[in-house]
Structures are given as structure tokens and as C-alpha cells.
């Protein structure tokens, strides 16, 4: 464009109006174009994720004094979480802290989430496998069907489990009517198991889709090759399909594990007195306990723990692969 005039390029560019210079820059720089396309998303992310997160980090260094906030920076909130003391034991593990409730609840939440995640992935895999390999005609329909539970709100699905597992619930009255039991079973609801069942149902659809995508991507000729080379169906699955679908499994596991650790609604509804999780106590800090700084510190403590576990998990997975490649 500039060459048409024949003048020296640089000098000419300087004399051009701002809008043209910007246009030229835009055409030259791919990165800039990318950022401009991303701007709305980045803006939303910044305003709704980064800013609140920074606010929370800042808050975790303040102190609540009755109804006022003391803005002097302090590590007191974090210290109160891990301050050593007489402690307590949970599942036989000692927690030697002055207020062991936070660490114990964190470990309990991580364990409950881990169990839920394992169950979810184990249940999601066969379903994804079926859609990827067995469903031939109506694949799209199957995918839509999987999202059907997501059409109602999360809270309603939790309530639905209360109706199913409850004292006069579907399960109990069904079992009574066919004569299996005489009294309603009390152990169905209001315990960690009920929380895990509910979480499993609520998050299953989120796990199926990533696994499905990774299975779908597998080159079918690899499977044929494995069969031609004499692998049985099981060996073929273990040596070809499973390793190739691992990225999907990993992302499913993370997608379920990370949000469920801090879940608050599910334990509140179906957890009873024994099924409470760390989310419950964090919510209390922002509610009745009136201690936002401690609530923020607990949230960050939880996020750090989750991050550590995720990193450990990813490192373990990566390590395995490297070993496998070396062998």
C-alpha cells in the first residue's frame, strides 16, 4: 500500500493518521489481532475472575474485628488454620492443630471428592465408549440424551436425590411395597455416601463428554492393526484404546474433582450432620460466623491444596508416560 506512493516507507508511516497506522500494525501483528478478538472474553475473565480472586487474596490478610475489618496485613488467618495444638484424630490420622476442624474437613472433602471422581470416571468411560464405538446411527441423539440431566437446575437434581433416598422416598417405599424391607432404611440419606451418590449423578455428564471426544479421535486403523497383529479384544483395549483415551480421562477427572471439593449445596442438602465438607465451613464464615477474612484464607487454603493435588496427579501421569516411553 505504502509502496504505491514511492516515498521512504518509515517516514511516510510516521506522517500517516493514527487510524491508518493502527490498521497497519493490526495487519502486521498476528498477536495483536488475536488479543483483540479475545478482548471480550479477557475482560469478562478479568472482571469476574481475576478481580474477585485478588480481592479474596487481599481479604485473607485482613482481620475481622466484630463488624469492622482491620486492614493491617497479617498472616493470622492462615496461622489459625495450621497453628499446632492438642489436635484430634480423624480416620486414625492425627491432626495436631489447635483448631483441627479446618484441616480435617479439608482432608475429608478431598477424600469424598476423590471417591466421587473415581466413581464418575468409571461410570462415564463405558458410556462414552458406547457412544464412540457402538452407536452408529444416532450419535448426536445419544449426546443430547446425555445432557438431559443438565436441563434442570443443579439444586433440583440434589432435591431429586433427597426424594429418592428419603425416609418416605422412592427407594424406601418401593422396597417396602415389594416386601424386601418393613421399616424404611435410614442409612440412605444424610451421610457421606449420599453426598457421593448425588455428586456422581450431578457431574457425570461433564465427565462423559471429554472421554467421548478422546475416544472418537482414535484412529480406527490402529485398532484394526492391533487385531491383525493378534491382540485379543481386551489386550487391544488395554494397549491401544485406553492409553489413547487417557487425555480425556484426565481432563474428566480434573473437571469433576476440582469443583466438587468445595461443593456446598450437596452436603447441605443430603449430607446431614456427618456429610459436611469444607465448603460448608467456608460458607459459614461468610454467613453466620461473620469472618470474611478467615473465610477467604480458608478458600485459598483449599485452592492451594487442590492445586497441589492436581499438580501431583499430572506429574504422576506424566512420569508414567515418560517411563512407558523409556521402556
Amino acid at each position: 500500500m505504502a509502496s504505491v506512493t514511492g516515498g521512504p516507507l518509515v517516514g511516510h508511516a510516521r506522517s500517516r493518521p493514527l487510524s491508518q497506522r493502527f490498521r497497519a500494525l493490526l495487519l502486521r501483528s498476528e498477536a495483536l489481532r488475536g488479543y483483540i478478538l479475545l478482548t471480550p472474553t479477557l475482560l469478562v475473565m478479568f472482571l469476574l475472575l481475576v478481580v474477585p480472586l485478588c480481592g479474596m487474596i487481599a481479604f485473607s490478610f485482613f482481620t475481622q474485628v466484630y463488624f469492622d475489618i482491620d486492614f493491617t496485613l497479617t498472616l493470622k488467618n492462615y496461622w489459625s488454620i495450621i497453628k499446632p495444638g492438642a489436635g484430634n484424630t480423624y480416620l486414625g490420622i492425627p491432626f495436631p492443630f489447635e483448631t483441627p476442624v479446618y484441616t480435617i474437613l479439608l482432608v475429608k472433602s478431598l477424600l469424598m471428592s476423590l471417591v466421587a471422581t473415581s466413581v464418575i470416571v468409571l461410570m462415564a468411560y463405558p458410556m462414552a465408549y458406547f457412544i464412540a464405538f457402538r452407536a452408529t446411527n444416532h450419535k448426536f441423539l445419544w449426546l443430547v440424551l446425555i445432557t438431559v440431566p443438565l436441563w434442570t437446575s443443579y439444586l433440583l437434581r440434589v432435591f431429586a436425590w433427597k426424594v429418592i433416598l428419603g425416609h418416605n422416598g422412592v427407594l424406601n417405599s418401593g422396597l417396602i411395597s415389594i416386601g424386601v424391607i418393613e421399616e424404611p432404611l435410614g442409612f440412605l440419606l444424610y451421610n457421606p455416601a449420599a453426598v457421593i451418590i448425588t455428586l456422581t449423578h450431578a457431574w457425570l455428564a461433564f465427565a462423559i463428554l471429554p472421554i467421548y471426544v478422546s475416544l472418537e479421535k482414535i484412529d480406527r486403523s490402529l485398532l484394526e492393526a492391533a487385531t491383525d497383529l493378534g491382540d485379543s479384544k481386551l489386550i487391544r483395549f488395554l494397549r491401544v484404546t485406553l492409553p489413547l483415551s487417557l487425555p480425556g480421562v484426565i481432563s474428566s477427572a480434573l473437571m469433576v474433582f476440582i469443583p466438587t471439593v468445595g461443593d456446598y449445596v450437596t452436603p447441605a442438602q443430603v449430607g446431614g450432620t456427618s456429610g459436611i465438607m469444607i465448603g460448608t465451613i467456608i460458607q459459614r464464615q461468610f454467613g453466620a460466623a461473620n469472618n470474611w477474612p478467615l473465610g477467604s484464607a480458608l478458600s485459598i487454603f483449599m485452592m492451594l491444596a487442590v492445586t497441589a493435588i492436581v499438580c501431583l496427579f499430572l506429574w504422576g501421569v506424566g512420569n508414567d508416560r515418560i517411563k512407558a516411553r523409556g521402556a
Binding site: Y66, V101, I104, T273, S274, I276, T280, I281, A289, N290
Partner: peptide, 14 residues
């Protein structure tokens, strides 16, 4: 404040 902290602890099953 003190009772809230204690009640939270007990509620958590400790």
C-alpha cells in the same frame, strides 16, 4: 463469637 467458633467445630463432627 466464641460460641460460633465452638459450634462450627462441633457441627463438623469434632
Amino acid at each position: 463469637e466464641k460460641l460460633i467458633a465452638l459450634w462450627d467445630k462441633v457441627r463438623a463432627g469434632l
